[in-house]
């Protein structure tokens, strides 16, 4: 555990709001409610919010858990650069998206939920969080260290590391005495 990343909760909340907005919209359109045009808008808005929120952000510390199959969404969302990276943008975007939902009952709940998500995103933005894509980690090959290029000085078997360390004050005593006489194998 560590510092709370509000964006993680905001993301869950926004995704849920997207689904609720979508459900409300479908009910409104299918039932041909009064003002079903707003419901049709809610369907579009719900789908948009879900697509935007599906890829989870990388956590600033600790292991990030991907949603299953979020990779291609991540790439798409990443393509918008600062627009999707900045949580202020998301907060205002969600706040704007949710407004038309308030005009008919079927989408009111989605509207309020998205409003709450927007508020949480605002908190996240104020605390300086931003969206970071989770990309498969590239294997970084460490360059071969210098010491490997130099062949070992003592023949095996070698003593463990702590004995090998040379004592500066007693160079003579620190010299390693090989128990087996090393001879050329001819």
């Amino acid at each position: 555990m560590g510092k709370i990343e509000w964006a993680m909760w905001a993301n869950e909340q926004a995704l849920a709001s997207g689904l609720i907005l979508l459900t409300g919209g479908i009910v409104g359109v299918a039932g041909q409610f009064r003002g079903w045009q707003f419901a049709a808008y809610a369907v579009a808005a719900g789908v948009f919010v879900c697509l935007l929120e599906y890829p989870r952000s990388k956590r600033s510390k600790g292991t990030s858990v991907e949603r299953s199959g979020q990779y291609c969404f991540t790439v798409c969302v990443k393509a918008f650069g600062p627009l999707t990276r900045n949580y202020y943008v998301r907060a205002f975007l969600h706040a704007a998206i949710c407004v038309p939902g308030g005009f008919m009952l079927a989408t009111v709940l989605g509207c309020v939920c998205l409003g709450i998500a927007s508020l949480i995103y605002l908190v996240a933005a104020i605390r300086g969080e931003h969206w970071e894509p989770i990309l498969p980690r590239k294997e970084v090959r460490k360059p071969i260290t210098e010491s490997i290029k130099n062949p070992p000085q003592n023949p095996p078997p070698r003593p463990p590391a702590e004995i090998r360390r040379k004592r500066v004050d007693d160079l003579e005593g620190a010299a390693y005495d090989n128990p087996i006489s090393v001879t050329d194998n001819e």
Partner: peptide, 10 residues
């Protein structure tokens, strides 16, 4: 899961 495990206070 992700919230409960990482940000228990929330």
């Amino acid at each position: 899961e992700v919230i409960r495990r990482s940000y228990f206070e929330v």
